[in-house]
Amino acid sequence: MATSEHQLPEVKRPSATTLPRRGFVEALLGTGFLATAAAFIYPVLRYFVPPQAVDLGGDSVVAAKVGDLKPNSGKIFRFGSRPGLLILSADGQYRAMSAVCTHLSCTVQYRPDLKEVWCACHNGKYGLDGRNISGPPPRPLLAYDVQVRGDEIYVSQRREG
């Protein structure tokens, strides 16, 4: 790109006759600098504003608050990019598992009348520990760990070993 122009600025430097009137260049530059500074600073200032949501969780999420669930009921929560199911069983124990049916990936739900996890798509049933009991599901639901810390119920990926 450089080889054709032997002397950098001379070639394109505006000649005296076409030189804009005094002050124009400064005004142009000033406007440009201000505009770019604004384009630079505005996003950064907006970036400083803390968003509404505190975070997106991680391997462990707050699935619910203590008291959100009545005994013998369940709740779907977001676990990363998939739904999870939190159950408070009739005997007062929290259990959590993936809510993605192992048959055709429908979202399962807790059935208080059956005291079982149930998939509405093809009537698949799972036990409270996630084991497939009847219907088409080929595999158990992935069980998660539940911890109650303060009044928050944390669900986390189960670690092996």
């Binding site: 142009l28 530059l29 406007t31 440009g32 604004a38």
Partner: peptide, 8 residues
């Protein structure tokens, strides 16, 4: 804005 600065 950048396009204004460059000719400036």
């Amino acid at each position: 804005a950048i396009a204004i600065v460059l000719p400036g």
